[in-house]
């Protein structure tokens, strides 16, 4: 037991230093967040050390202060005719629109697949056909069919988010405890009530997990989506900067995407914790 000393045990070090003994159970212990902070600090420090040593040319890896300076500059100033917040907003709009569409389509369709085996047999090949394809592979088709407008960009991200949401929902629905369903039936539940009061809440933890995974997949498609004749967006910003070897803008874009994606992920985790506090508990 590394925790607090009990009243039965003398605390020699506190007597030596004259500091009051720590109250029971209050001794400082590093938490998960402390370790995470340490990891990030280590990464930043290595980055700084590596660039400050002059071993790597700024063209390949700009120093952190250069990226930070670029960040300050682009808050108001523009790169490729848009400020950083404008690029971010353009990407966020696409992401959120695609997410909304994927949730609106994916959850009901996932429920249908989970409830009706026939729907699963019919749709499973379609989903499994397109799911492993790299978005860049079917990007040309989407451009040919839907043009180079906003719809094609959102569609590409939507497809990336849809598969995880669909699969997680179908699996969540199909794996709701049969005993729970039988108990509800014996309490007089109709088929609709069973779905509404037992199956859906039971599948909710998995549905939210599907949305979390989907959102990650969506972000990873963002750059591909913004290859389609975009004039704004973080993916577009990174690609344009890459063409002119403006490495600090590339790194800045990567960091902004990572931070925004992480913030959304944290929000979804909070939501999951609030909506489904029983998740992960023995029940």
């Amino acid at each position: 037991m590394s925790t607090s000393p009990t009243t039965l045990i003398a605390v020699p070090d506190s007597l030596d230093t004259g500091t009051p003994p720590a109250p029971a159970g209050r001794r400082w212990q590093p938490q998960a967040t402390h370790w995470a902070a340490l990891s990030i600090a280590g990464l930043l420090l290595s980055w700084w050390a590596l660039t400050a040593s002059g071993l790597i040319a700024p063209l390949f890896l700009p120093p952190p202060q250069a990226v930070l300076a670029r960040f300050g500059e682009l808050l108001a100033g523009s790169y490729m005719d848009a400020t950083l917040p404008q690029h971010l907003l353009a990407s966020l709009q696409r992401m959120l629109l695609a997410l909304l569409a994927a949730v609106v389509v994916g959850i009901p369709l996932g429920i249908v697949i989970g409830v009706f085996p026939l729907a699963r047999h019919l749709l499973d090949p379609v989903i499994e056909f397109y799911r492993p394809l790299p978005p860049l592979a079917y990007l040309p088709l989407i451009v040919i069919w839907f043009g180079i407008g906003e719809a094609s960009k959102v569609l590409l991200i939507f497809l990336a988010i849809l598969a995880p949401v669909l699969i997680a929902t179908a699996h969540g629905v199909a794996s709701v405890s049969p005993l729970r369903q039988q108990a509800a039936l014996s309490l007089g539940a109709s088929r609709w009530q069973l779905l509404r009061h037992v199956i859906l809440p039971g599948a909710l933890p998995e549905i939210i997990t599907g949305v979390r995974i989907g959102l990650g997949a969506g972000w990873s498609t963002l750059v591909a989506a913004e290859l389609i004749a975009a004039t704004r967006g973080l993916g577009f910003m990174i690609q344009s900067a890459a063409q002119f070897l403006v490495t600090d803008v590339v790194v800045l874009g990567i960091i902004v995407i990572a931070l925004v994606a992480f913030a959304l992920e944290l929000g979804l985790r909070r939501l999951q914790q609030r909506l489904t506090p029983w998740h992960g508990q023995p029940h």
């Binding site: 039988q182 108990a183 509800a184 109709s190 009530q193 009061h197 037992v198 809440p201 029983w278």
Partner: peptide, 25 residues
């Protein structure tokens, strides 16, 4: 009405709402 060994309660409802569940349905 059936009572199972476990796994049949609804964890998103509190005790009162679980007991009220049948009458509500």
């Amino acid at each position: 009405a059936v009572v199972f060994q476990h796994d049949a309660l609804l964890p998103w409802l509190n005790v009162h709402d679980n007991v009220a569940f049948g009458l509500k349905l």
